[in-house]
Design a protein around this nucleic acid. Sequence first.
DNA 1: TATAACTTTCCTGTTT
DNA 2: GAAACAGGAAAGTTAT
Length: 298
Amino acid sequence: MILEGTGRMSINSSSNLLHQQPSWTDGYPTCNVPGSFYGTQWHEIHPQYWTKYQVWEWLQHFLDTNQLDANCIPFQDFDIDGEHLCSMTLHEFTHAAGTAGQLLYSNLQHLKWNGQCGSEMYPSHNVVVKTEQTDPSLMASWKEENYMYDSGYGSTVELLDSKTFCRAQISTTTTSHQPLESSDEKKTHDHPPKSHTKKHNPRGTHLWEFIRDILLNSEKNPGLIKWEDRSEGVFRFLKSEAVAQLWGKKKNNSSMTYEKLSRAMRYYYKREILERVDGRRLVYKFGKNARGWRENEN
DNA sequence: TATAACTTTCCTGTTT
DNA sequence: GAAACAGGAAAGTTAT
């Protein structure tokens, strides 16, 4: 195809390629489609008029600003536009996403009734960067303005912090096993008195989480990364340079390449977030310290 | 300000 | 020969 022949992909080729995956990449923050992601933001228009992608943005924002794992929300259940979203009942939200669904519902009602929220929440024009870097002040305001909003579930929901509710949700939907914590978080739990400190996460989402999240939404990104063995956590890059471009876009780094991305991936071997898959190119496997990729963790 | 975590960048050598 | 892999080294960025 366009990419893999040259190794170093030009911006234009990336764009062309990604346009070949309409469902997921049309609106994904990639590759030179001015306005598609950096243009009209979900928070700038009424939820009723959101596209499917803007619904996804809203969900992603929810995860990003609270540093939650993607499996807190079943994205496949939210493959809907704003009109459909607004017609969903609290019960449907709860059914789809548990406690997170309650919070999403509350937030949506707030957005519906208060109109645009962008101007107050995002004084900066560069919304994406702020959002994805999980600005603590933004997170705080997000929590204050949205999570604490009375949904009728008030007392139970309000008192859960973001990670707690995620854990709570998962504990209600699975009988086992894997705590929903990164290795970093696990360390903090080994020393619980530290008042539930936020994990050190200098630049927002980690690379491995970014990769995992693409995989978890694989029905919407055919052709970028695919599972080779879902149960074993083995996956393969199909469009390595395109993924690198996406990662670079997320990090606001237009010079990202698969070569650099793969170097970062190799550092994960030592931390056992990834395991080597010998003899197979572009194939990686989640290690024991990678969380949130297993089906039964959902 | 110092430190640590997590990349990012560059590089050389090896393997496929 | 090209692409991908491996890993050392140093620098950059950001949260604590």
